[in-house]
Simulated scan of single mutants.
Amino acid sequence: MPDGSHSRTTEPPPFGTEGEDRGSRWLVTCDHATNRVPGWVNGGDLGIAPADMARHIAWDVGALGVARALAARLDAPAVWSDFSRLVIDPNRGEDDPTLLMRLYDGTVIPANRAADAAERDRRLDRLHRPYHAALGRLAAAHPARAICAIHSFTPQLQGRPPRPWVLGILYSHRDARLGPALVQACRDEGWVTGDNQPYSGHLQGDSVDRHALAHGRPNVLVEIRNDLIADAAGQQAWADRLAPVLERVLHDSGL
């Protein structure tokens, strides 16, 4: 297995940014933006089928397109990871046991089964930490920063009932300043909206915890059903819908 030491200067950065000079107080983030596996990780192959790498287990399908379009509509900067969540999950704290998933929604991840502490630290050093450094830098670049994290979810997990929502608004019990108001605003638009569904809005050490809650920054996490944003038209449409609602909710909050 190549150790990648010769390629550090030529490999692409593990994150992307756009609009760093935009003036909005919003920062749009996308933790699970791509399904890229760097060549130095098991030769660029996690050992699972291409069809599985295209599924939600490897990335948040459609989320990056929404995040970039939404950031443009908000005149806000955007930052996103550029590595698969199966390589190492940027939306997990460094001590989270699910940082390197060995089994996800019925799929075994062979390249992670034998990953030891040294491999975990290598992936942290070369992927996870640089992404969070970029996110932290952009979060701190505006004195009144508010963070909107964009994710997507699959309509149905294997062996589970279909999920009824078109989107979910997630927020922590430690900061409900924007989340409940955004849930109501989305429902007022006629969208079937989950309130901390399909996932809980609080995860110790995750990106929102680290870059928003720990600094008192207003925040929301938006989960969009991925079949609705599978193409560029759907991604732009949801960005166009969400932007004015986000602006209104933040304005009305008085924060």
Rank of each mutant, 00 (worst) to 15 (best):
V79G: 05
V79I: 11
D82N: 12
D82K: 07
F83D: 00
S84C: 02
S84E: 07
S84H: 07
R85S: 00
V87D: 01
V87C: 07
I88R: 03
N91F: 03
N91Q: 02
G93V: 09
E94F: 01
D96W: 00
T98L: 15
L99E: 07
L100Q: 03
L100E: 02
R102V: 10
R102E: 14
L103N: 11
D105V: 05
D105C: 07
D105N: 13
G106T: 03
G106C: 06
V108M: 01
V108W: 07
P110I: 01
A111P: 08
N112H: 10
N112T: 09
N112E: 10
R113V: 14
R113T: 14
R113W: 13
A114S: 15
A114R: 13
A117L: 11
R120A: 10
D121F: 03
R122Q: 12
R126I: 01
L127H: 06
H128K: 01
P130C: 12
A134Q: 08
A134T: 08
A140I: 01
A140W: 04
A141D: 15
A144Q: 12
R145S: 12
R145N: 02
A146F: 06
C148S: 13
I150F: 01
S152Q: 00
T154I: 02
T154E: 04
P155A: 11
Q156H: 06
Q156C: 13
Q156K: 14
L157N: 03
Q158N: 09
Q158M: 06
R160C: 11
R160Q: 14
R163V: 07
P164V: 01
V166D: 14
L167Q: 13
L167P: 09
G168Y: 11
G168K: 03
G168P: 11
I169R: 06
S172D: 15
H173N: 12
R174H: 15
R174S: 13
D175R: 08
D175Q: 12
A176Y: 01
R177D: 14
R177E: 13
L178P: 08
L178C: 04
G179Q: 10
P180V: 05
A181K: 13
L182Q: 00
Q184P: 04
A185G: 14
A185Y: 10
D188Y: 06
E189Y: 05
E189S: 13
G190T: 12
